[in-house]
Design a protein around this nucleic acid. Sequence first.
RNA 1: CGGGGCAUGGCGCAGUCUGGUAGCGCAUCUGCUUUGGGAGCAGAGGGUCGCAGGUUCAAAUCCUGCUGCCCCGACCA
Length: 594
Amino acid sequence: MHAPATSNRRPTDVQPASDLLGLSPMRLSQYPINTTKETPAEAEVLSHQLMLRAGMIRRVAAGIYSWLPLGLRVVRKVENIIREEMNRAGALEILMPAVQPAELWRESGRWSEYGPELLRLKDRHDRDFVVGPTHEEVVTDIARRELRSYRQLPVNFYQIQTKFRDEVRPRFGVMRGREFIMKDAYSFHVDDASMAAGYAAMREAYTRMFTRMQLNFRSVQADTGAIGGSASEEFQVLADSGEDAIAVSDGDGFAANVELAPAAAPSQPRAAPGQPLEQVVTPRMKTIADLSAFLATPREQCLKTLLVDGADGGVVALVLRGDHELNAVKAQKLPGVASPLRMASATTVQGATGSEPGFLGPVGLKCPIYADHAARNMADFVCGANAPDLHLRGVNWGRDLPEPAAADLRNVVDGDPSPSGAGKLRIVRGIEVGHIFQLGRKYSQAMNATVLDEAGQAVTMLMGCYGIGVTRIVAASIEQNHDERGIIWPEPLAPFHVVLIPLNLQKSARVRASADALYAELAAAGVEVLYDDRDARPGVKFADAELLGIPHRLVLGERGVDAGSCEYRYRRGSDNQDIPLATVTAFIKARLAP
RNA sequence: CGGGGCAUGGCGCAGUCUGGUAGCGCAUCUGCUUUGGGAGCAGAGGGUCGCAGGUUCAAAUCCUGCUGCCCCGACCA
């Protein structure tokens, strides 16, 4: 480190010894913040744009970011709330390595199961390692070494640590980065009841955390995905920019990720055939939309046939109503379907049907066929004829082709009935910030993690695992809290509580004396204050304060100093309020009181 | 990984089609003025035009290859 080259730097403020979190007050003249008026071209979503403009983060590579002082303070706020609530729930903080030996992953089976998302590397001795995307293996290894008796259970270990997942498509800044900070927790239990209790405790802890962070969120039923296990819920922050679709019932408490939300079978019986089967020429009509327009037939009267790779190397046909979308999570769970789901290649389709995609239909198809409940309920429908530029019209199950196997294959849509029958589903967007699972014995069995029970018998432990995307929360909060001027931090996440803006600081000794004194007073009172003592015009300071989203603003000008008052403004408000200088600190403390 | 696009001072862009001395705004530095909502004037610094080949008297510009990044589809905190 070099000493500052210029002499206009002021000595660093004395920091309270108790400030272990780096959340001390700050003079802006000592921090080379770079805010911008223009939005960097790389940023698509608002939170990403604002984080770059406010100087919170900088991109290093695709999906990999540095956190600058201002951004890091917010990360620390999020971490602290998580830490407090995890500790309150009785969890124990640990820290596991980012780089892990391949042996553990071979033991769990995930060395081969996990795809290219797992970053693998070799050390100098040519030994295999991974950069941890998650820590079930390492924590299970700890548990099997440290835990001997049922009397030591239940236990919940958690850490807040950097993860790496080589995402196919990192995007939206830290919303979906490849490297990110995650809180991951793992609980160990001797029986199902204990695992369920541990899960419930985490659900409550998560609810408390996200409530404290003032996020608008809700929990939803979720797919267990690559982590595995049984019961699972996601905590979704509601935002239109969210990547997840959530189905929420207006009639009961049901809420689930669309991946998982069951689509009810139609309650009406299928109509009787009313039209004769006929072939129609449909040149180049390869999509449902084109076909529907060409034949002047509603999309819901057309049948969509998709060929996917089978588990045994063949293909499987999945049939949907024309206006419905395939649900990959549901489909890949069907017997005979490859998991993860893969669409059959064009050449495979040609070989299996004699046609190119776009003219497929279930009539005369030789491979296994699954029809979605809604598709199976159609009568007199239109479908491909398995020949180029030809479709069939007036097709009927049972009459023109065998009844297909029925399955739930589609995404639920707005207006679908809730699974319980009470109410209708609405589809909203969400950002997944937390996910809790009951894992059961998936890892403990594979890695032989046992304890002795009351009878002295070795029993395999049950596990739960609980994740939170720490850095993602920062972006999610911005998505929910901003206006045209910038970020509006909820107080618990704000990098600073108060921004103190002196006007004409360089010229007015009175303002400087008052502002310096007020800054010292606020800092001494434990207020996290950002002192904008830069030699800049008022407009610049106001604009930056609003971009940065500091919740409380104090402005001190010569007029105010002479009148013995300071001007206060709340970031969400539009009115100014004059506060006697002598009572400013008390006023702020009162506003900050929980 | 497939499809589309972009790559020119720190940031945002023009210039490329039609080859000929690299330009604008913001930011930065100096001086003066200004000081309650992103100041004005005068001056200054900063770019191997992503990389490597090729064509040409001459390449940011044309050709080939590579790399990086962004956007659209299957994964997840």
